[in-house]
Amino acid sequence: MSDTTPQFRSPVVATYPTDPAAELTLRDESAMTKVVIRAASGTPARASLAQVFAGSRTSGDVLIAGTRPDEWMLLGPASAVQERLDDMPTDGHVSIVDWTHSRAQFRLSGASATSALEKVCGLDWSDHLMPNGAVTSGSVAMVTCDLIRNDVDATPSYLVMCDRSFGQYLFESLIDAGSEFDLSVA
């Protein structure tokens, strides 16, 4: 039997110079626990999640995002997510799938984050159509992504999630898009 401790590997395997203090940063958050919940109408889980489709809210350390009409995603530290799941009633038709390993997750932050996204995504990123907390999905550099606006200290910040297999490609695409705005990996 192997006694090696498994090490989680991000889909982003290349290394980049980092500058967390840069005005525009891209952070690989693929290791964050991500759980997808689907709950049918009338299940108590829906009430427990208390988040409508296309929006998000923070509950403790967990971000609850309404990603589809009957689908939610919980994002956060593993223990906090598990605690939230433990509190959630699962009566009725409710399914829970751990997507931690299924999805790459990146955070693009900075005043020019929107400008960078405009280069790789055709969505309307204005405050009117994509306010803080908004959740949507769309094509980013031709990859289907879940997108959450999750501002940090009143600075625009976006979570970009895609199928893990596209992770390296998408990370590089975002770096390329942000290079015009002096993006740095955080």
């Binding site: 192997s2 498994p6 590997r9 693929s30």
Partner: peptide, 30 residues
């Protein structure tokens, strides 16, 4: 290999004794 939550199937496409192991992807390389 110390990775929990793996799924193993005894199937194969090659005609030989085979085990298809599905490993949580973050530990796949491990």
């Amino acid at each position: 290999a110390a990775v929990d939550n793996c799924v193993m199937w005894r199937i194969g496409f090659t005609g030989e004794l085979s085990f298809e192991v599905h490993v949580p992807a973050g530990y796949g390389l491990h």
